[in-house]
Amino acid sequence: MGTEILKTPAPTAEELLGRAVQDPRDLTRYLYYLRNVRAEGLSVAVAPLDAAINWSRASSIWPLTFGIACCAIEMMATGAAKYDLDRFGAGAFRPTPRQADLMIVAGTVTHKMAPRVRRLYDQMPEPKFVMAMGACTIGGGPYSRLGYHVVKGIDRFLPVDVCVPGCPPRPEALIDALMYLQRKIAADRPVTDRYLRPFFSKEKRR
């Protein structure tokens, strides 16, 4: 049954995987290809492309090296050996926003700081996520009523994905928030949305 397909020069797995998204016939060819590979005694895994992309994204969330106040001390503790954020693939703190996926806003954001934070966020490539760590970033914290200089929550100038309550939050809380973010990423459908949904779908992507 599959012999005539195998007569043509076999495309690479990457080519087939890319074509399979657009043309279901390519998917059939891909599955035959896999059967052929299996026959050679090699291991093969098959997964929906969305899941594969989400898995790689959620397992390598690189945060931006960015601490503003006391919450940053807890963030550093989370990154250090005892709590070891690297277990979740999120231990590679990047010194430039161009390489970062996640912005952990760890500390009080003052009115003077807010435009700088926004600029760093704008410099990060998509897809990007923001974590509001600590009471100050969620709603002003201890400065919420009388602090003339503190922005009462970073959601006033940034789209926040996860809030981590605490003053400051313990490392366990930050890890919990990271795992929450991983679940959030896992629910995303990056490929399906881009290729199979109508371009002018009224449904919002994220």
């Binding site: 009115h111 003339y148 009462k152 006033r156």
Partner: peptide, 13 residues
């Protein structure tokens, strides 16, 4: 001193 209600487009309330 009275704190400003708004600074740089961000409200203080």
């Amino acid at each position: 001193y009275v704190a400003p209600r708004e600074y740089n487009g961000l409200t203080n309330e």
